[in-house]
Design a protein around this nucleic acid. Structure first.
Lengths: 147, 147
DNA sequence: TATTGTTATACTCTATAACTATA
DNA sequence: TATAGTTATAGAGTATAACAATA
């Protein structure tokens, strides 16, 4: 029997359930990231879209969204907001699709986002060895192939 | 530059961001668990509450919730539903708090939940070595102490 | 006919505030 | 006054269906 992390007086039946620990760790990391990014007035998800557009200019928003597991329908307001904020521009190579590109302001914002993300990564995972970090990432990515 | 897992034609700026990979893996594991538990007509969160009550009888729902990072306000409908379904009973040691206990049916349901969780754990993480599994769990739990 | 983007909508999970009743 | 439980509510994030415009 293991103690519950949050309450040593209780038994924790989920202490060794990886899926559960994954959820708790992810929720906490996201909450921290959300708080840190609020200084830049951008959400974690919008930030991931911005970084993906910057790394892959002139792609459709459907394709950018697919790479992030975000549905077309949910990309519409995300991209509209990024454009409103002057971070992203929509080029129109044909009449039914866009080619998304980062503006200069978007690139600055992306740099700020990366800085914040790196600080958080250091704080949360900085004490892991490089090999452990590599194993960790590989294990996480492997999960997605088994879903 | 790394490829995006979901689209080899794109560059993935988040490939080595542990927090992001954590979120994606967690979302997928939760989605799979939710689908598997639907056969038992219970959600992943309700299932975690049931297991925690079974392992810690006669505790208040506030305390059970705190161990799972679920707010008092959100515990109310969860516990009400578990009671409706005959899985949990509320004893009343005093007039303002409950002592939650698992019913016989609740214990059967908990066993079914454990079986389903174990199957999923095996499928998603079964190929990890025991030592890697231990490192993995420790790393995930460590995140919660750094939030 | 298939695809891109959009709108509308609903559902879940989460967060806060305010209320009650009891201690 | 402090605490347990409840209710109402609001905000994300996510899911599906249906539609218009275009290829």
């Amino acid at each position: 029997m293991s103690d519950a992390a949050d309450d040593p007086g209780l038994t924790d039946p989920l202490a060794d359930v990886i899926g559960y620990q994954l959820r708790r760790a992810s929720a906490l990391a996201m909450s921290d990231l959300s708080a840190a990014l609020s200084a830049e007035n951008i959400s974690p998800i919008a930030a991931s879209v911005l970084l993906m557009i910057e790394a892959n200019p002139d792609q459709t928003q459907t394709r950018i969204g697919a790479a992030l597991a975000i549905q077309r329908a949910n990309m519409a307001p995300l991209v509209a907001r990024l454009e409103e904020d002057g971070l992203v521009r929509r080029k129109t190579p044909d009449g039914r699709s866009y080619g998304l590109v980062c503006t200069a302001r978007g690139a600055e914002k992306a740099a700020a986002v990366r800085r914040i993300m790196n600080e958080l990564e250091d704080r949360l995972f900085g004490d892991m060895s490089d090999t452990m970090r590599r194993h960790f990432i590989n294990a996480l990515r492997a999960v997605r192939e088994k879903g």
